[in-house]
Design a protein around this nucleic acid. Structure first.
Length: 500
RNA sequence: GCAGUUAUAGCUCAGUUGGUUAGAGCGCCUGGUUGUGGACCAGGAGGUCGCAGGUUCGAGCCCCGCUAACUGUACCA
């Protein structure tokens, strides 16, 4: 063996856009998921789980091909060479499930589903390549009641998560109204040039909140140069059309009723547009009757959502307070969830129209945003009481102490390492343990235990600068009879400084 | 994809007009203390200066190429 031949050591690292989830985050996410699930359950939705992998053709239009099998999705070939993809949302698998089990389902079919989805895209703040979505869908009805219900449920979820009214906004629009505007400027044609322009216009409209009306105007016209100097080609509309589109996206008023009236004026003469307005009127009637006002759900003509499958009412939830990073720069998280009607998705499989509407909450992004704000409802879990190991030969005794504490419902662990006292206390400190139980030779001789209160100790250390004193005074320690272990621990943990 | 910025220890960063052995703080490990978390003191480990070429007597620093990350932008079913 030559000495300069190095062993290959992979650098321990993670692909970008993927993240480990530490204890605190696991607990918080679980709590968020529990809360959201409870709201969905209250509304009557039933749980469903589907696998991470689906046949690529079942997921949608981004079919992998031999040249670029990873465009947007993570895909791999089965041993029979069929392409499979990691799901990029929970809606497509649901459509597949409904189509596959159509005859046996109670319709409208109402289910909820939570789980990770994967997208092979460039990550950013609040954007990951694996993230958790929490969806609920009603499949098999054209009734606007289903859409209105989603809007109200969306609002309920946000507030149950501890986001106060006014700190979030659910903005709603209708794709049919958008179509009405596009009709007014002759962009509803089927030819390729027209449909490309249509997409460019819709993308531009969607950017109103970020770029303002001036920015959108540029994108509707010649194009726009961003601050890095990059240039985005525009839709090249004529001035009159640009004015119409801008008037539309800015038609939002302070009440939903006024917004609808303004929109009706703008799309007058468009049948599809009027239909969209009628739908929102119906939704507005329902949410008003339930007491959901504009401070929770408001109509906003600049909401577009995904370009692909939405066909009716669409909505988007955003956090309305500012989020700053460490350097004080404003961070854009984008929407924390969306919802909308997609009447064509199941038809891909069945050939028959199966109208559907659903909601999708981006749990990962919501978590990231709330984390930045220090706002998420972190469940407090007390770290375990640590039983130190003074004498390795007494492990069985220590184990019994831990078992007694567990019996009383107290998290407890015997130190599992092989280091000395100092290291064990450091360990307990780092774990955030409230107490350390010590029984060495001296205590055992008297059938006693020493219990050290790490919280009290930490406080005391602030006033002690001398190590001799710190050590000899054995701060925050007390002794008890071994048989009183559980009771003593319970008493100490009941004290205010240990309360959560 | 496009554009800009950046790349030096586990982390945050310094490193002079190009000069000899590349530093600091924090963190980590050991000891001071054979049974005590903090503080303090002493010591220690840890670097292919992103990769590869070039200029030069000499490159962390200058030049070229590549890669990656970050930010913006585009796309986002």
């Amino acid at each position: 063996m030559s000495k300069n031949k190095k062993t290959f050591r992979p650098k321990a690292r993670l692909p970008r856009g993927f993240g480990d989830v530490a204890a605190h985050e696991v607990r918080t996410m679980a709590a968020m998921i529990k809360t959201i699930g409870e709201v969905y359950e209250l509304y009557g939705f039933e749980p469903l789980e589907t696998p991470a992998l689906e046949f690529a053709e079942c997921l949608g239009k981004f079919l992998p091909d031999a040249d670029r099998p990873n465009e947007g999705v993570f895909a791999l070939q089965d041993d029979d060479e069929q392409w499979m993809s990691l799901r990029y949302d929970l809606t497509a698998p649901t459509a597949r499930y409904v189509a596959e089990n159509y005859d046996g389902l109670a319709k409208p079919f109402r289910r909820y589903q939570v789980g990770p989805v994967w997208r092979n895209e460039k990550p950013g703040p609040g954007r990951f390549r694996q993230f958790v979505q929490f969806d609920a869908d009603t499949i098999g009805t054209t009734e606007m009641a289903a859409d209105a219900e989603l809007a109200m449920m969306f609002s309920d979820v946000m507030e149950k998560l501890g986001i106060e009214r006014g700190d979030y906004a659910i903005r709603m629009n209708n794709r049919k109204i958008l179509d009405g505007v596009l009709e007014k400027i002759n962009l509803l044609g089927d030819d390729e040039a027209t449909s490309n322009t249509r997409l460019t216009v819709m993308r531009a409209m969607d950017k109103l909140d970020r770029l303002g009306s001036q920015g959108v105007r540029l994108l509707l016209g010649e194009g726009r140069k961003d601050e890095s100097g990059d240039y985005t080609k525009g839709a090249n509309l004529d001035a009159a059309s640009i004015d119409k589109v801008i008037a539309f996206v800015e038609a939002g008023k302070s009440t939903n009723k006024d917004t609808l009236a303004a929109l009706a004026e703008l799309i007058k003469g468009s049948e599809i547009g009027q239909q969209g307005i009628d739908e929102l009127v119906e939704i507005n009637t329902l949410i008003l009757a339930a007491g959901y006002l504009e401070d929770r759900i408001c109509f906003d003509p600049s909401i577009v959502r995904g370009l692909g499958y939405y066909s009716g009412p669409v909505m988007e939830a955003e956090l309305t307070f500012e989020i700053k990073d460490e350097k004080g720069n404003l961070v854009r998280f984008g929407s924390v969830g969306g919802a909308g009607r997609y009447d064509g998705l199941v038809a891909r499989f069945k050939g028959i129209e199966v109208p559907a509407t659903g909601i999708s909450i981006g749990v990962s992004r919501l978590y990231a945003a709330l984390e930045k704000l220090g706002k998420h409802p972190a469940p407090k879990v007390r770290a375990p009481v640590i039983i130190s190991v003074m004498d390795k030969s007494e492990r069985a005794t220590y184990q019994q102490m831990a078992m007694d504490l567990r019996q009383a419902g107290i998290r407890a662990e015997v130190y599992m390492g092989s280091s000395g006292m100092k290291a064990q206390l450091k360990y307990a400190d780092k774990r955030g343990a409230p107490l350390v139980v010590i029984q060495g030779e001296d205590e055992r001789a008297n059938d006693e235990i020493t219990i050290k209160d790490l919280v009290v100790g930490a406080k005391a250390s602030k006033d002690i600068t001398d190590n001799q004193e710190w050590r000899s005074s054995q701060v925050a320690q007390m002794t008890a009879k071994t048989q009183d272990l559980v009771k003593t621990v319970q008493d100490i943990l009941a004290k205010p400084h240990h309360r959560h």
